[in-house]
Amino acid sequence: MIKILVLYYSSYGHVEEMAWAIASGVREAGAIVAVKRVPELVPETVVIRSEYTLNQAAPVASIAELASYDAIIIGTPTRFGNMAAQMRNFLDQVGDLWAQDLFVGKLGSVFTSTGSQHGGQEPTILSAHIVLLHLGMLIVGLPYSFKGQTRMDEITGGSPYGASTLASDGMGGDRRPSRNELNADRFQGRHVADVAMSLARGRRQIELEPA
C-alpha cells in the first residue's frame, strides 16, 4: 500500500485544518495517510501570549520516519514570502537521509496559508519546492482539473503550485478556510495519492517485464 505523510506546521489552526482535509483526500484515493506536525520553536511564554492553537491532535514527526513514506505533503504558513522557521528547521535536519538518496523518486507537494490575499502564497510554495527538488523528489501541484481555482465569484486561495487559504478577512479578523479552499485541499490529497499509486504500478510492471 502507498503511504503518504501530511507534514505541517500551524500557529493558529488554519494549516492544521487544511492538513486534515488533505488527508481525507488521500484516504478517498485509497492510500494510507499519516498526519503529523513539526516541533514548535517559539518559547512557551510567547506561544501563550500570542494565543497559538495548542493541543493539536497530530503527533510530532521524527526525522527518521520520513524515508518510510512514498509521498510527503508539506503544509506551512508563510513568513515574509517563505516557509515558517519551524518547518525550515525540521527540513534542515534531513541531511543524513538526503546523503543516502532516500528521498529520490518520492513525491513532494506543498500547501500554505497567508494573512492576506497577496501575502506570499505562491513564493512560499515555490521556495519549498526548491528544497524538495534538492532532495530528489518529484513535485506534484494542484492542476487546473480542480476547477475551483478558476472561480471569480469569491476571494479564494489556490494556484497550480498548491492549495492555499487566506487567514484574515482584511479587517484584522480571523478567516477560516472556505469550502472551496477545503475542496482544493481534498483534491490535492487525492491527486498526490493517485500519482503515487500510478508510479507504483508502473514500477511493478517494469519489474515484471522480462529482461
Score class of each variant (00 low, 15 high):
Val94Arg: 05
Ser10Trp: 06
Val104Asn: 12
Arg151Tyr: 02
Arg88Leu: 11
Tyr69Met: 10
Leu133Asn: 12
Glu17Pro: 00
Gly148Met: 05
Ser68Leu: 09
Met1Ala: 14
Gly13Val: 05
His14Leu: 04
Glu209Phe: 14
His14Gln: 14
Pro77Thr: 09
Ile74Val: 15
Gly95Ser: 14
Ile74Asn: 02
Leu97Asp: 11
Arg203Val: 09
Glu51Trp: 08
Arg203Gln: 13
Gln56Thr: 11
Gly162His: 01
Ile22Gly: 06
Gly119Pro: 02
Lys36Trp: 04
Gly120Ser: 05
Ile206Trp: 11
Val192Glu: 02
Leu138Ser: 06
Phe146Cys: 03
His134Asn: 15
Met137Ile: 12
Ala67Asp: 02
Arg204Lys: 15
Leu208His: 12
Tyr52Lys: 14
Glu154Leu: 13
Ile130Asn: 03
Asp185Val: 05
Glu28Phe: 02
Met18Thr: 00
Gly158Met: 02
Ala21Glu: 11
Thr165Met: 11
Gly13Asn: 10
Ala61Thr: 10
Val110Leu: 07
Leu208Ser: 13
Arg175Met: 12
Gly170Tyr: 04
Val192Arg: 03
Thr156Asp: 00
Ile73Cys: 02
Leu142His: 05
His14Tyr: 07
Leu7Pro: 03
Arg49Gly: 09
Lys106His: 08
Lys147Val: 10
Glu181Lys: 06
His191Arg: 07
Leu107Ser: 06
Val192Ala: 04
Gln86Cys: 09
Met137Tyr: 07
Ile139Cys: 02
Tyr69Lys: 07
Thr76Tyr: 01
Gln121Asp: 04
Leu166Asp: 01
Arg176Glu: 09
Leu199Tyr: 11
Gly189Leu: 04
Ser62Cys: 08
Pro160Asn: 11
Asn82Pro: 00
Glu209Arg: 13
Ala196Thr: 13
Val42Asp: 02
Gly170Val: 09
Phe187Glu: 00
Ser116Pro: 08
Glu65Val: 09
His118Arg: 12
